[in-house]
Simulated scan of single mutants.
Amino acid sequence: MADAAVLWTFVLACAAIVVVPGPTVTVIIANSLRSGSKAGLMNIAGTQLGLAIMIGILAFGLQAVIAVMGEIFDYVKLIGAAYLIYIGIMMWRSNGALAEAQVGVKKRSMSGYFWQGFFVIWANPKALLFFGAFIPQFVVPDGNPAFQTMILGGIFMVVGAVGDGLYALAAGRTGSWLTQANIRLIERISGTALIGGGIWLALSKRA
């Protein structure tokens, strides 16, 4: 398992990613504004289930890749570092506007919000690709890759639940802070953190 310093880097990278509104957060905010925080929290519960399944797929898939082609693992990690830098640049180029949430504008039952969250995360295939590029950077090849991936994925889920939950609670009570300027600031801070983290990971790998 990675040491404490690397784990803290992972936690900070998770926070930088989670805090920026994407398709899932947009739905959570839209439902919370319309139907209250509970609707957004049920969306989060559904996304957590979807994330758990994705992480399980990645964990055992990564174990198979390392077992068969362990020598390419370092290259996988470097590609992941480049992907983090790319995401950071995209955040800097964003205009700070929340995307239109075409789903979730109508009222649903609480179970309906749950399953909506589940299907929204799975409707975004980039999520699984993202995990495949992000989490392996923090996996120690000589350890158990499946176990490490499950632990790291669990950490990401906790950070994601907290971050998304704050959006749901804030939007359910007042959406006045969700201005374009505030979102733009969040994107720039998170983008800078991801670019810096990606560069650090790439250079540390070459050292």
Rank of each mutant, 00 (worst) to 15 (best):
M42E: 10
L51T: 11
A123P: 07
M69Q: 14
A171Y: 00
L51N: 13
I87T: 07
I87S: 03
L178Y: 10
Y86N: 07
I183S: 05
R184Q: 08
K205R: 14
R188M: 07
A15H: 00
N43F: 00
I53G: 08
N144D: 15
L49K: 05
D142E: 15
K126F: 08
C14N: 04
F134S: 03
S109A: 14
G112W: 11
A133G: 12
M91F: 14
V68T: 13
A81D: 01
A16R: 00
F156H: 05
G132V: 06
F156V: 02
G40M: 03
A16G: 06
F114Y: 13
R93T: 01
E187F: 01
A97Q: 15
A2Y: 00
P21T: 04
V140K: 12
G80I: 02
L58E: 06
S35H: 14
E100Q: 13
M157D: 04
L194Y: 02
K38F: 09
I89R: 03
Q116C: 09
G104M: 09
V159L: 02
I53Y: 07
V105G: 14
K38I: 09
E187H: 08
P136Q: 07
I186E: 05
Y86I: 05
I79S: 10
D142F: 11
A181Y: 05
I53W: 06
N31D: 13
N124T: 14
F147S: 12
A59M: 07
Q148M: 06
G175M: 06
F114A: 12
L178A: 13
S109P: 10
Y113V: 00
V25R: 03
L33R: 07
L84Y: 02
G56I: 13
P145Q: 06
I85F: 10
G117W: 04
S176I: 08
I135G: 01
S190E: 05
W122T: 08
A81S: 12
F138K: 04
G46L: 08
Q48C: 10
F138P: 01
A101D: 10
W200E: 09
T192M: 09
A67C: 04
T9N: 11
A193Q: 03
Q137H: 03
A170K: 10
G165M: 00
D164S: 07
L41H: 01
A161K: 01
S94A: 15
I195K: 03
L166G: 08
M42G: 05
F118T: 09
A13E: 01
A146E: 06
N43V: 10
G50M: 11
G61Y: 04
N95P: 03
R184S: 10
I29Y: 03
A181E: 13
D3V: 07
Y113K: 02
A13K: 00
A181V: 10
E71I: 10
A146M: 06
L51A: 15
M1V: 09
V20Y: 02
I189T: 07
M1Q: 10
T26C: 13
D164C: 03
R34E: 06
A99N: 13
V19R: 04
G36P: 08
I85L: 05
V159R: 00
V76M: 15
L194R: 02
T24K: 12
L33E: 05
N182T: 07
S37M: 11
Q148D: 12
C14T: 02
G104Y: 06
I29N: 04
N43D: 12
F10I: 04
I135H: 01
R173F: 08
V6E: 09
S35Y: 14
A170S: 12
A202M: 08
N31M: 11
G46D: 08
A45F: 09
N182E: 05
